[in-house]
Design a protein around this nucleic acid. Sequence first.
DNA 1: TTGTAAGCGTTATCAC
DNA 2: GTGATAACGCTTACAA
Lengths: 342, 342
Amino acid sequence: MVTIQDVAKAAGVSKSTVSMVINNNPKVKTETKYKVLSVIEKLGYVRNVSAVELTTKHKQNLGVIRFQRAELKNSFEGDPFTFYHDVANGIYRELQGSNYGLLHEEIKSTNGICQIPQMVKTNRIEGLLIIGGIFDKQFIETIREKISSVVILGVDYPDYDCVAMDSKFGTYTGIKYLIDHGHRDILFINGPEFTTSTDLKEEGYRLALAEAGIPFNEKRHMKSPFSGSGGYNAIKEVFEKDTTHPTAIFTGSDSIAAGVLRYFYEKRIMIPEDISVATFDDSILTEFGTPPLTSINMNKEQVGIEGYRMLKRRIKNPKAERKCVTVPYKIIDRGSVKKITG
Amino acid sequence: MVTIQDVAKAAGVSKSTVSMVINNNPKVKTETKYKVLSVIEKLGYVRNVSAVELTTKHKQNLGVIRFQRAELKNSFEGDPFTFYHDVANGIYRELQGSNYGLLHEEIKSTNGICQIPQMVKTNRIEGLLIIGGIFDKQFIETIREKISSVVILGVDYPDYDCVAMDSKFGTYTGIKYLIDHGHRDILFINGPEFTTSTDLKEEGYRLALAEAGIPFNEKRHMKSPFSGSGGYNAIKEVFEKDTTHPTAIFTGSDSIAAGVLRYFYEKRIMIPEDISVATFDDSILTEFGTPPLTSINMNKEQVGIEGYRMLKRRIKNPKAERKCVTVPYKIIDRGSVKKITG
DNA sequence: TTGTAAGCGTTATCAC
DNA sequence: GTGATAACGCTTACAA
């Protein structure tokens, strides 16, 4: 292994000079700088990350965590967590060329209590990105005690740097799209209760209705867990109990939409001829699903990119004021909504 | 920050004794051991990973990489890489309780040449897990020059430790299942050309046909990229050009199946009444897809679990002989295949 | 069984 | 501009 010492000897300078060159210290004469650089190149020297970390007391890794509900994961009874992967993709991209490595960890929760990430406990990281998930205040504050640079992705969490999604206006846009296509009896299958995003989505739903002068009907606003079976059960209830059916459905997530589609396929109810469907998320479930659904797309990679930038900012300046950026949405038309005239 | 020194002082012993306690060295007297342990507990001491790495010359991180085709990722024109995520889940699970952190990286390829992972170049990891992907010999050998512990997941790669999937017998099982349900005109839309798994799957297909005395028909063995559009175009070609249609389709991946389903939905060809479909993969695309497809499931988490174990083994004993384990498959019946009597 | 001391590869302080 | 040198927190001979 080539060390800074070897480089120094070969270049005929001291360790400190080499170190300064590596760290782009402007004090070094250009001449010596290039001499050292060429020796580094020739010898194939690379910095020993551990040594750097030890001396500087700064870690060269960032962390990203997600929450796990092991029993349900990837099953129709649960949510496929595609959000996590899409966001992680954005982080990867933005991380290129930096000196940071990216550590991942899955957080288990037992009885609703989330375990503190191992990489936080063992002090391996300089900053942490938390992707979505439902966690308690206790959890996040314990983390911040140990590590000051934390950014939350996917929700607007008070007092923490966040990259949030505009769930309210995303939903508003989706519902308005349906209304503009002539629908007035719209069923909204929202996400689970006691969730910030669910509340925001409800606001968006109500706003769009109000603007169009459509009265809010409790029966047309359902709540469902983020899962295929949740969507399936919800739509089944509506179709089996109600005599009148909505002309359009909007779902709070792709997993819920998957359940709805499955029910319609079973009943041979075709989209969009028989009923219109649109959804919020635009994950690979919708991208690869059948039929393709018109969807609210949130550019999740952008969430990762912004998150990384915010984390860098926070690390650089721990005293910076709290910031929350919101990633815009757009609607992707895939023809699953029929234009009707009432 | 609490150091080993602080613990030593508080416990009234020397640094080395503390170190020995931490490392479970049996030489320490049980009495001193527990004294030290209690002080560690009280002071909340945690090891400084960087210092350990520096002294032992061993890194406390493992790496996992995947390959990226950025332009296509997560689009219907590409493959959603769910394999990667499923496998990663297994690694996470198995990693719990170890001292290792898990570094992720996405590998870019330009003109078919894969870049050497940053974490390998910068010497951050003790071992590397490579998930699937198509890479050249040059790439993998350059990596092994720098880091001796490498395990490849998803394919049987000569001369490297591998956790492979039994693509041949998986396909065989799927095709046999169709045959057992009375199908004799079976279209197999295999994966892309020049791919090991595609060749293996073809072998499985041919074997099942041969056993049933069904002659191999070139027109019934197509190749397609792993993508939704690939499957769509393939099935479209068959249905628009051929006068006779197969009674059953088997696809080489879930993304290909997604394309097939989309075409059938457009043409209002219903599954399984009008045609039977089964697939290889059983990713979330199938889990959440409509209609649910009978599928060959490979327990991808198990691939991750086995991979981690093999990597540990390799790290412990770099001279161990090369090993390749194969993860079994099972068939998940979701009712997308009709029983027919010819 | 425990303590002393050297050393890991780097950065940072301070002379020169 | 550059070079000694101490320090970072830990492990490991070797000595006691």
